[in-house]
Design a protein around this nucleic acid. Structure first.
Length: 235
DNA sequence: GATTGATCATGT
DNA sequence: ACATGATCAATC
């Protein structure tokens, strides 16, 4: 692998780097970084995400910090179709099953992860070889008033159910913008949880994910109009 | 066609 | 083991 850039020291510096990706292809970037593009992502699901981390100078690699630790910004690549619409949900965080009952929205891992996110759209059509996929225009995003209210609503519903010890009743159907789905090596994986009586039980690990409908809406809204023109904050 | 549940690779 | 990065593929 070649030249890992310094972490960006400011948001503008990060955005200059991120915008420079727009219109370029995954394969070119891989070549520059000395990486080899896989023929498909079946056995390399995090390949594009890792590539962009390195290209932009993310420094948190596998630590419990935002990708750009100094700036407090999380990086998410977002696979989109030919019209710019997300084709996959977005993983947010694993669910701390034994703690969720005690967490408030403001102290929740969902809130912390989503406070500030750099979205980097990338073509995600499976018919396109990974190397041929182009990057889109990045969006540095924080939830606006309505988005945060929506996220909070779902968090309270889902965390409430899990906090009561009913994680096994939660399916991916619940939640308007957030959902709960498995997050594990396989369906036999187990991690410590709490049942309805407060007893310790081993359950399938799960994570919070953003629905594609939610990321579609946020891309559209924040690209089409700047937040100041949408009456954010109550106008 | 959209969605849910299952799964893959890598690093600490 | 569990965190990071996600997409695959069966099913609705």
């Amino acid at each position: 692998m070649a030249k890992p850039p310094r972490p960006p020291e400011s948001e503008p510096e990060l955005m200059v780097r991120a915008r420079a990706l727009a219109g370029r292809r995954v394969g070119e970037l891989a070549t520059e970084l000395g990486a080899t593009c896989p023929p498909d992502l079946r056995r390399a699901k995090g390949f594009v995400g890792g590539l962009v981390e390195r290209a932009l100078g993310a420094d948190a690699a596998s630590r419990a910090l935002p990708d750009f630790s100094r700036l407090g910004i999380e990086l998410k690549t977002l696979p989109v179709d030919g019209r710019g619409k997300p084709v996959e949900s977005t993983f947010v965080c694993t669910i701390p099953l034994t703690e969720v009952a005690v967490l408030e929205w403001g102290s929740s891992p969902v809130y912390r992860k989503l406070r500030r996110v750099l979205w980097v759209p990338v073509e995600g059509d499976r018919a396109l070889a990974p190397a041929a996929r182009r990057f889109g225009e990045p969006l540095l995003w924080s939830p606006d008033t309505q988005e945060e209210a929506d996220l909070r609503f779902d968090w309270e519903e889902l965390a409430g159910i899990i906090g009561r010890g009913d994680v096994e009743t939660v399916t991916g159907h619940l939640g308007r913008c957030l959902q709960v789905r498995p997050k594990a090596a396989n369906s036999r994986a187990r991690r410590r949880g709490t049942d309805r009586d407060g007893a310790s039980v081993d359950v399938l690990p799960r994570g919070f994910y953003l629905r594609a409908t939610f990321t579609a809406q946020l891309l559209c809204a924040h690209f089409v109009l700047p937040s100041s023109a949408r009456g954010v904050g109550g106008a």
